Simulated assay, not measured.
Amino acid sequence: MDQSIVNIKPFAYAFSLISGKWKMHILFWLWKKEVMRYGQLKKALNGVTHKVLSVQLKELESDGIISRKEYPQVPPKVEYALTEKGLSLMPVLQALCTWGENELKK
């Protein structure tokens, strides 16, 4: 491939949406479970702090990758799920999983 015709802008945009230590992990779990509450995500992401998880969820929501649904009850109930835009990223995530699986077999 001719390196001189590579456009960095689409890559930079896509990477900006998923960069962050936990974003791909969040997307993975929402892909597998479809809908998760905050506490379920925190438990699945063993080692993530409340602040980091909260910030990364807000960024993913702001970018239209995930949706946040809050139920008016006590205690508060909040659920997260992938949006259509987020679901459109899943073939990329699947390709990464396949690559990782193949590499682990070596």
Results as ranks from 00 to 15, higher is better:
V92H: 14
G64D: 01
I65D: 07
A44Q: 12
K33C: 01
L41W: 00
E84K: 06
Q73N: 09
V92Y: 07
E59R: 10
W99S: 13
S88V: 08
L41Q: 00
K42C: 06
Q94I: 13
K42L: 02
K69P: 09
P10Q: 04
S88L: 13
V35N: 11
S67Q: 14
N102I: 12
W29E: 10
L57H: 00
F15T: 07
G20K: 04
L87D: 13
Y71V: 02
V6M: 08
M36Q: 00
K77L: 08
E101N: 13
M36A: 00
E101R: 13
V74Y: 15
R37T: 05
E70S: 04
T49N: 03
K69I: 05
D63C: 14
N102E: 11
E84A: 14
Q40V: 08
V6G: 13
Y38F: 11
Y80D: 02
I65L: 12
Y80G: 08
G47F: 12
K43A: 03
W29T: 00
I26S: 03
I8D: 14
T83S: 04
M24E: 12
D63Q: 10
W99Y: 15
K77N: 02
V52I: 12
K106F: 07
K105L: 10
K43L: 03
K9Q: 04
I26W: 00
G64V: 15
Y13T: 09
S19M: 11
A44K: 01
Y71M: 13
A14E: 09
S62I: 07
S19E: 06
C97I: 07
T83C: 15
L93H: 14
L27P: 01
Q94A: 14
K77H: 07
G86F: 00
G39R: 06
F15E: 08
